[in-house]
Design a protein around this nucleic acid. Structure first.
Lengths: 151, 151
DNA sequence: ATCAGTTGTAACATATAGAGTAACATTAGA
DNA sequence: TCTAATGTTACTCTATATGTTACAACTGAT
């Protein structure tokens, strides 16, 4: 399948807004960082706004997080931007004349629910704040390494 | 994204082979149950065979599970048929000139790994045997309900 | 009041992967 | 030898994630 980057891009947008909160937060500027286009960023922001993670104001480039990054989980973002929100998908076109075809859909749905629950529990424990912290940690490591190699 | 049914279909194939082990196990017959086509079934069986879950013999319709269904986990099947095997996908095209774009890829990769690990741990605990058992349970429930309503 | 810049939104184009289909060489068993 | 099956490839079809373009509505500055 073709892989969706919606979650990754949405986290990127939120991190960008937090980190560059005093800089240029236009959809064009953000799109440059995501290496995508402004319309995609705006569409993502619509979803994030609907989920109550973000406020925007038409006409001004001032998106703002509605709450502290520590109170925004990866799960919040995931559910905001992934319509379906399912990691695994049941084939709902099976032959009902067959024992397997007649019962496998509900069987798999139950099993997939368990997997989903495990994944979401983990996602709920990863916050935007922790991700941003990691971004900074890696950034400082890179700067230190750069410093080191130029000596 | 367009959803892949490879995992669901692969489980279907394995369950079918186990349940109808004395019946017609041709790719055509299995395809009828999956409501798909023989080539798809054969392609899935190639993957399952490569993963050591199945043996087949060219010319004969005799696929066989290589081990007890209790020793085959959903994770085994998942890893057999999903090439990539990743539930979440990092956008690897970000602007390296930007603090976020330069560090978010590895950051998200680490986070996604944790989620993946949680999901896989759950998948490892779901066996083909338990799925087949559920299929039978639901089948018997349906038959009982049928019996009930016709009285 | 006007204007430049921006968001909100829709419509359309493009690229890609999953699935469908067809074909055929190879093999097994009758 | 014949039939039916698998193994494999090539091609088509289709859904959808993303890219692109366009424009109305809105904001703040001049």
């Amino acid at each position: 399948m073709r892989y969706s980057h919606r979650l990754s891009d949405a986290v990127h947008v939120l991190a960008y807004i937090d980190i560059y909160h005093d800089g240029n937060l236009s959809s064009t500027a953000i799109a440059a960082s995501v290496e995508s286009n402004p319309a995609l960023v705006r569409r993502l922001m619509v979803a994030l706004r609907r989920a109550g993670l973000l406020t925007t104001q038409q006409g001004t480039a001032q998106p703002r997080l509605t709450r502290d990054p520590a109170a925004i989980s990866l799960l919040d973002v995931y559910q905001a931007v992934e319509e379906d929100g399912r990691l695994l998908h049941v084939d709902d076109k099976t032959n009902l004349q067959c024992i397997v075809g007649r019962n496998i859909q509900e069987t798999l749905r139950t099993a997939y629910d368990e997997v989903q629950q495990a994944a979401e529990a983990k996602m709920a424990r990863i916050t935007l704040a922790s991700l941003i912290k990691t971004i900074w940690t890696r950034e400082h490591e890179k700067r230190a390494a750069e410093e080191d190699s130029s000596r």
